[in-house]
């Protein structure tokens, strides 16, 4: 750990609680999603039951991690706390947000309950503000079929600008395809063009656009200038500090 001064996990103290050593994996995958959508089942599907899972007595957080190999690459997968949103201030959301923002995972895999698509997309769209590299797993697809509801995954994928893969975590249906997409996005084979919400109330949209331009000027390498601008407007003092003391700049050089 000590020789890894520049590896993402060391950049912010916020991540120290994770105590990761990520250098032994080729790609880091963050696993996000609403509570109760089958995230842990997906984790088990991906890593097999042999991986090291367990409850970690953290503050409010139970966390698991695992690893899997695909096409000669080693993937490390970090299970983030289940949250409805990333905009609020609960401890769980902060951890999930900080990891996606500062931990810079190579792919963020968002598990979605297909039967509650709308509410789940709320989280997906928020994640797309922070990071480009996202794969959406449309879990519980069998429930949709049972209810005779049709979901056009290709159309969804096109609208979101990232892969959206129907899966049934319980029976491992679609898991192979999911892994392949994770690999494609991680290795850069699939280039994501994430959807960014453009229609906020007039005054707010103007403020966001104005600040985004300024942030971009100051930090040209930042992939998520708009998110930073939104956090500033939200009064996120952690981001303010990261800008002031240069940590944000260092992170995305």
């Amino acid at each position: 750990m000590a020789d890894c001064v520049n590896c993402p996990a060391n950049v912010l103290s916020a991540l120290k609680r994770y105590g990761e050593n990520m250098q032994d994996a080729d790609f880091v995958v963050a696993l996000a999603g609403n509570p109760n959508v089958g995230k842990s089942t997906i984790l088990n599907d991906l890593t097999g039951l042999k991986q090291h899972t367990g409850n970690w007595p953290g503050k409010t957080v139970t966390r698991a991690e695992g690893a899997f190999g695909y096409k000669e690459k080693k993937f490390k997968i970090i299970d983030l706390p289940g949250t409805y949103s990333l905009l609020s201030t609960s401890a769980d959301e902060e951890i999930a947000r900080d990891f996606i923002l500062f931990g810079k995972p190579d792919v963020t895999l968002v598990v979605v309950d297909s039967t509650k698509l709308e509410r789940n997309l709320n989280l997906v769209l928020q994640i797309l503000e922070i990071t480009d590299k996202v794969v959406v797993a449309l879990n519980l697809f069998d429930e949709l079929r049972r209810k005779n509801i049709k979901l056009d995954a290709r159309r969804l994928s096109a609208d979101l600008g990232v892969p959206a893969v129907p899966v049934v975590a319980r029976s491992k249906e679609g898991i192979n395809e999911l892994i392949d997409y994770v690999w494609q996005v991680a290795s850069g084979e699939y280039v994501c063009k994430p959807k960014r919400v453009k229609k906020f109330n007039g005054k707010i949209q103007k403020a966001i656009d104005d600040l985004t331009a300024d942030v971009k000027k100051l930090f040209p390498n930042l992939p998520n200038a708009r998110w930073i601008a939104m956090r500033l407007l939200e009064g996120d003092m952690q981001i303010e500090e990261a800008i002031k003391n240069g940590e944000l700049g260092k992170l995305f050089q």
Partner: peptide
């Protein structure tokens, strides 16, 4: 936005 995207992708019986 989520509602718009969802309604484009989903078709109820």
């Amino acid at each position: 936005e989520a509602e718009r995207i969802a309604s484009r992708a989903i078709q109820y019986p």
